[in-house]
Amino acid sequence: MSIKLSPRVDLASVTRQNIGTLRRLNGVILPVPYSNGVYEQVQSPELEDFCKLVYYNDIPVGSVCCKVEAGKLYIMILAVLAPYRRQGLGRHMLNHILKAAVSDPEPIIKGDKVQPRKKLDSVYMHVQKENDDAIEFYKANGFSIQADVKDYYKRLKGEGSRDAFVLSKKL
C-alpha cells in the first residue's frame, strides 16, 4: 500500500513583485512570448481574481491570466509546468476563476469613478488544434468547441500548428 503525500496548493495574485516569475513560467511553458503590455494588464486590480499564480508546496508552478471583453471572460493563459501536470492544478485554477466569475462582481475603481463591472455571461479561450490534452481537459470541464480559426498563431511554424479552436462555456 502506498500513501500519496498530497501537496499544499495555494493561489496568489499577480503583482509588480512576482511578475518576473510569471514571465519565466510563460517563457518556459508557452510557445509564444507575450508583450510587456500584457504583463502590465494582468496586474490591474479589477482582474485580480482572474490572474493568479499557483503554488505547489510554496513553489510557483503555473498561472492563469484572463481579461474581460464585452461581458465575456477570456482566458489568455492557463498553464502549468510539465512536471506538475495531472495533479489537479489546472482544474484548481479553472474552478477558482469560474467561481469568481459568477460571484458578485467587484466594482471597477478608476480614480474617483466607481463603475460596476458588467455581469459575465460566458467564458472562452483559444486552444491550439493539435493540443489534444488541453481540448480534452476543457471539454471535461464543460467547455465546447464554438469555432475553428485558421492561422490563429501567426508566429508558429508548421502547417496545422497555427490553427486554433475557440472553446467556451456559459456561466
Binding site: M1, I3, K4, L5, P7, Y56, N57, P83, Q87
Partner: peptide, 17 residues
Amino acid sequence: CKFTSTDDKIQPTTSYI
C-alpha cells in the same frame, strides 16, 4: 516518485527538486 523502492510514500513533485 519514491525515495527508495521499498518506501511506501509517494512523494510530491517538489521532493525531486
